[in-house]
Write a protein that binds this DNA or RNA. Structure first.
Length: 201
DNA sequence: CTCTGGATTAGCT
DNA sequence: GCTAATCCAGAGC
């Protein structure tokens, strides 16, 4: 048996994983490992909470009214990173899904830190582990994701997502999405039941 | 051009 | 529980 190094343990998710139904991708991203190679310092975390944004069907999605300069990345083929700036001070990171031109994405709302604790603590200016990435803007801060990372291809070597555990349906919780005023009725938030790194409500 | 409010968070009361 | 912080995209005129 060859020795398995921590970073070779997981395989990068292929393009096909992302080019599927958005709600399916949002559920299946749970348990996968989100990785940022920040100038050689690896930061990674297990995805524990996501939300789906379904473009033209979804008044809460940035792409509801079609393509603009801000949301153009959401119309790329699945497997790109859509980063947007909001509330005058925060960034949020989304995984683009479906085929080119569709305009759907999955918001990464929380991860359980796995690797790179020191770097995350520096970026977050925080000593505790529990609150490093249990919210969409916290996650971006902890992972060093901002405007420059918008449009990053997740099949490249800087930011990617690795296959890991498949969370069974019985362990996935659903609810309405957080912090929106339009299309609130859709239960398109997904999280790992009982995981303490899911964001507070 | 102007105005409104937002896929949030931290820090108070 | 409440709200300030602090930009800027998108809508409306």
């Amino acid at each position: 048996m060859p020795k398995r190094e921590p970073n070779n343990k997981f395989k990068k998710l292929p393009r096909k994983f992302y080019e599927r139904d958005t709600l399916t991708v949002a559920r299946e991203l749970l348990g996968k490992i989100f990785v940022h190679n920040l100038q050689g310092k690896l930061i990674s975390g297990k995805i524990v909470e996501t939300e789906a944004y379904l473009g033209e069907k979804d008044a809460a999605a940035h792409t509801y009214r079609g393509k603009t300069k801000r949301n153009e990345v959401m119309f790329k083929e699945g497997g790109h990173l859509y980063v947007y700036f909001t509330y005058g001070m925060h960034y949020c990171a989304n995984v683009v899904t479906e085929q080119e031109g569709v305009g759907h994405a999955v918001l990464l709302r929380a991860v359980q830190p796995v690797e790179g604790f020191e770097t995350m603590r520096e970026l977050r200016k925080l000593d505790t582990v529990m609150e490093l990435a249990n919210g969409p803007a916290k996650l971006c801060q902890a992972f060093g994701i901002a405007r420059a990372q918008n449009g990053t291809d997740l099949l490249g070597d800087k930011i990617f997502i690795c296959d890991a555990e498949c969370v069974p349906a019985s362990r996935i919780g659903t609810s309405e999405r957080v912090g929106i005023t339009k299309a609130k009725e859709f239960p398109w938030r997904f999280f790992i039941k009982g995981n303490p790194f899911v964001s507070n409500l």
